[in-house]
Design a protein around this nucleic acid. Structure first.
Lengths: 98, 98
DNA sequence: TTGACACATAAGAATGTTCTTATATGATGT
DNA sequence: ACATCATATAAGAACATTCTTATGTGTCAA
């Protein structure tokens, strides 16, 4: 799933979808890339559970599906004390979830 | 940088370093992988700014370097409203940073 | 200074990713 | 039924990742 977030195009797509949902055509527009390439990225995002889609006429509308993003967020939150503590440099981080 | 987080071995290394700093030998121990493989992962983490290291005798001690983790965390935090709001299903997420 | 230890680097094989072009599918309007 | 629009899928080329084994580098201890 972090793998799906590893690609900058896919992160840009998510940033775009964060603002509002979009059809594929609209998602393609800002990228210097063919439509199949975007569809493939959407597939990766979809398989990672990061987006969902529904049909609407002949368009397919994609939107954010937040659950895995939240998992990633929660994982990173484990490291929060590293930038919160001023004790940072002391290597003072022992088990916070035993 | 998300690319560096995309590999499960590297995330496991970070999880390990989150608890305390470690030498390479200790980091290798839980993995079914050779020492050079781990050293290569450590190099990727280091180039992404996710870990730092210092020499201590003949050991090299690795520890977390939190700045890029925080960037990732901040990026994901942009999506926080998706799992916070109960309006989730309404696609009601318009610009929150214009 | 020599041997052993802890680690890094190099080279290469296997596999995975990310694009392209060409083609298939599914819905709409006539 | 047919042409068209919106999108998906397939096949393949180019490049990147992730391991392996073999070897290099720096530190310590005798």
């Amino acid at each position: 799933m972090f793998r799906a977030l590893a690609d900058p195009t896919r992160r840009a797509i998510l940033d775009r979808l964060r603002r509002r949902e979009h059809g594929v055509g609209a998602l393609c527009e800002p990228f210097a890339m063919t439509q199949p390439a975007i569809s493939q990225h959407l597939r990766v995002l979809s398989e990672a559970g990061l987006v969902r889609s529904r049909r609407q006429g002949r368009e397919r509308i994609y939107s954010i599906s937040p659950r895995p993003l939240r998992q990633a967020f929660d994982w990173l939150a484990h490291f929060e004390s590293f930038w919160t503590d001023r004790l940072d440099a002391l290597g003072d981080h022992l088990d916070d979830d035993p």
